[in-house]
Amino acid sequence: LVRYRTISKIPQITLNFVDLKGDPFLASPTSDREIIAPKIKERTHNVTEKVTQVLSLGADVLPEYKLQAPRIHRWTILHYSPFKAVWDWLILLLVIYTAVFTPYSAAFLLKETEEGPPATECGYACQPLAVVDLIVDIMFIVDILINFRTTYVNANEEVVSHPGRIAVHYFKGWFLIDMVAAIPFDLLIFGSGSEELIGLLKTARLLRLVRVARKLDRYSEYGAAVLFLLMCTFALIAHWLACIWYAIGNMEQPHMDSRIGWLHNLGDQIGKPYNSSGLGGPSIKDKYVTALYFTFSSLTSVGFGNVSPNTNSEKIFSICVMLIGSLMYASIFGNVSAIIQRLYSGTARYHTQMLRVREFIRFHQIPNPLRQRLEEYFQHAWSYTNGIDMNAVLKGFPECLQADICLHLNRSLLQHCKPFRGATKGCLRALAMKFKTTHAPPGDTLVHAGDLLTALYFISRGSIEILRGDVVVAILGKNDIFGEPLNLYARPGKSNGDVRALTYCDLHKIHR
């Protein structure tokens, strides 16, 4: 019993810090008490220290592992850092350059016999395009090294910054494609005289377009951006097909006994025919423009016929181009109408809503002055909100995010209106959640004399007048207030005048 009563005193000691020596009952000389009392004092002292730490809000209350900052290894790049964003855009520009100039170089340097010394005699450094290609190869190699040090988000939505895990993730992902696209074939085969082989191998750079397509997928929600990307894709495919079309004609031209190829026909049409040795002929500019003209006309199913396939190889390629053109029509131009419709969806919704308003007016036989006010209010409210119901949009977000959005939407009023000066951010967040926005066209009466005042109004834009009878008592403008002081009276009061809008007004109100 003594032991039980001794232990039962522990909660009292913990909360009230009572010393055991003052209790005459606990001072009985028993061996059990002498053993338990020192333990009680020690526990009391420890609990006292913990309570003191909690009340003082000291940093040592938290466990040590929670006080440590997340460790980022040296030379690790955050995937959302500004440097990584700028670097990704730079790589994107280099990939676009590669997609345009690599097929052009591979096709127009394929057994090209233009006048001038061969590239091997001039030297590697004197070729501007080769120098640019070398810079692109170096940048792609540097990009691989950067990807080995860039964080990523795993399946659990955690940012991984450990170098080993980053390397394994990159090896399992895009490393092989990036490595093949970054191989400097110019340096590996330079001086061997195989410019045709170098041009063909350099087309491996186009593998990076797969990554670019995935990154550009984030802009699919913007109709104008999608339309622009589709047109660029169409032009890029036409450019690639033009390079292939020229390569076919250029390879067949020296081996044909009869002059029936499209390059021969082009030379005869523009007065620059090929001679018996295969030299001469149109310039590279004429060849490229004509090839691009043929691919565009074939892809769009126009086909004027002034550039036509004559050999079997050219006919087979033309059939493939027609098939590609039909697929592009289905996948690209078939979506253009939907994209344009999405661009004008706001206008369509406006006309639909206006039609419903006019049908309501016609069905209920609203008189002319009231009908005009109804239409003007709808037009003004639509121009202010673009038909978007803010309350319906915010309803799907958590309250903390709703408060931040409301604070942002009402920031101008909260910053410049005098009653809100000096208020804490928590108070402003709470008030912003209570605001209701209303609009009024010129001549609209917001409050009639004798109406119950259940709200306090803040003028965000425009001006109003307060009338008693036919006498203008006051004219209020931006950041002015009218209405009933909230919670100042037990019952809502009545208006002693009319409140009429002089201009288009936007008002925020808080109800009782």
Rank of each mutant, 00 (worst) to 15 (best):
S194D: 09
F363K: 06
Y344Q: 07
E64N: 13
W174G: 04
L230K: 01
Y293K: 01
A330Y: 04
L227V: 11
V168F: 12
V212D: 04
G443Q: 03
F171N: 01
A125W: 15
G303S: 01
Y274G: 01
E64M: 04
S81Q: 03
T311Y: 01
I361W: 03
N335H: 12
A432T: 04
L230G: 04
T424S: 11
S194Q: 14
N306W: 01
G173S: 13
P70K: 07
P441Q: 06
D444M: 09
G303W: 01
M179L: 13
N386P: 01
E196T: 13
G271S: 01
D404Y: 01
M251N: 08
I324P: 01
R214A: 11
T295N: 01
M433F: 08
A238D: 01
L241Q: 01
F435P: 02
F420Q: 01
S283I: 01
T203Q: 01
E359I: 01
L78K: 14
T352N: 09
N156C: 11
N335R: 08
G346R: 07
Y104D: 01
Y288T: 01
V393E: 03
M256I: 15
I177C: 14
D133A: 01
F397P: 01
L374R: 01
S326A: 07
S277D: 06
S383P: 08
C417L: 14
G271M: 03
L200T: 05
R211S: 01
W174Q: 04
L279M: 08
Y377F: 05
L229N: 03
V393Q: 03
G426F: 03
P184D: 01
D217P: 04
I146P: 01
D133W: 01
A291V: 01
Y124M: 04
C417F: 09
Y384W: 08
Y246I: 13
P163Q: 04
P118H: 09
A235T: 14
I177L: 04
D268V: 14
F108C: 01
N275I: 01
I388W: 12
V136C: 12
T385Q: 15
G426Y: 01
H439M: 07
L413Y: 01
L292K: 01
R349W: 09
A182D: 04
R74H: 07
R373I: 01
L327T: 01
H448M: 04
I72W: 14
D186V: 09
R208C: 12
K215T: 03
A235E: 01
R218H: 05
P184F: 01
F185L: 09
T445I: 08
S194N: 14
L134V: 07
R358D: 01
V160C: 10
L414P: 01
T445C: 12
Y104H: 01
V212E: 03
I144M: 14
Y65N: 05
F363I: 13
H408T: 01
K272H: 01
C122P: 01
Q68S: 07
V142N: 01
C232G: 12
I366E: 02
Q341P: 04
D133N: 12
Q127S: 08
E114M: 13
P117M: 15
I177D: 01
N306R: 01
L176P: 08
S277F: 04
D186Y: 06
N310I: 01
T424M: 03
I248P: 01
V289W: 01
I405D: 01
L401T: 03
S105Y: 07
L446W: 01
R373T: 10
E252S: 01
V226G: 11
D133I: 01
E376S: 12
